[in-house]
Design a protein around this nucleic acid. Structure first.
Lengths: 124, 124
DNA sequence: GTCTCGTTTAACCATTTGGTTAAATATTGT
DNA sequence: ACAATATTTAACCAAATGGTTAAACGAGAC
């Protein structure tokens, strides 16, 4: 089944984040790659339910899936969160009238997320 | 570490932000207080529809309403956005492997935005 | 082959969402 | 008192959401 047209990506991201179960899944993915079954195991709901939640997150671009044999390996993908947080920060800071934290966010525009082993850019 | 879930409000905030019409309303409120009718006017939908959207935003704590006579004056309330952006930043930065901007976010709980020419508030 | 495993799809159900129009409410103006 | 204004509430509808169970699919194991 193909997806319907395209609702704005921001719509999908915020909608995906609006469910505590899905936020919980994302939280657990901080610890690294996992599988559908592993993710479902502690949750008190059926496997198809978890599968659906993962699909919502995937449609929002918040996770990537690597299928290997019969196992689906899931990892979090932070990229769409950038846009979401930018929207929020833009508004929050205009309302709060303090722009310096917005500036801090803005100073990282280059889309360069290559390193798996990350060099942590330290602030001098 | 496991953060005890604080589910309800975050659910409401993210759900409220997941609709482009509502985000548009919030954007327009950057320019200051407005009324229901004024907010509804450019939108191609009925007044009750706008009223419902405003209620969703209000339930999420994202706006405040000052009733004066028969007119409802609406202003944006950025406070709940703090929690939302904290959630996102916490996760985004863990996935992206850079923690310093998270630290920057975390170290500003007191509502004290004094200097316009700002340095980062230092914690010695 | 057959069986089990990991996962999705299908079909269904109840609730919520986003919209409508019509009516109600409350306030202001004449 | 009456009418106009600003907004909400009520009633309804279609579609989306979040869950279920049962069936299907694809890959390893025996």
């Amino acid at each position: 089944m193909r997806r319907a047209p395209q609702p704005l990506l921001l719509d999908l991201v915020f909608a995906a984040l609006s469910d505590a179960t899905r936020r919980g899944l994302l939280s657990r993915l901080i610890e690294g790659e996992s599988t559908v079954g592993t993710l479902a195991e502690p949750l008190q709901m059926s496997l198809p339910a978890v599968s659906k939640h993962l699909r919502v997150l995937e449609d929002a671009g918040l996770l990537k899936r690597r299928i290997e044999g019969r196992t689906h390996y899931i990892t979090a993908n932070p990229k769409p969160l950038r846009e979401a947080v930018n929207w929020i920060e833009r508004h929050r800071q205009m309302w709060e009238g303090s722009f310096d934290r917005l500036a801090a966010l803005m100073e990282q525009p280059p889309p360069e997320p290559p390193a798996k082993e990350s060099s942590k850019p330290k602030k001098p």
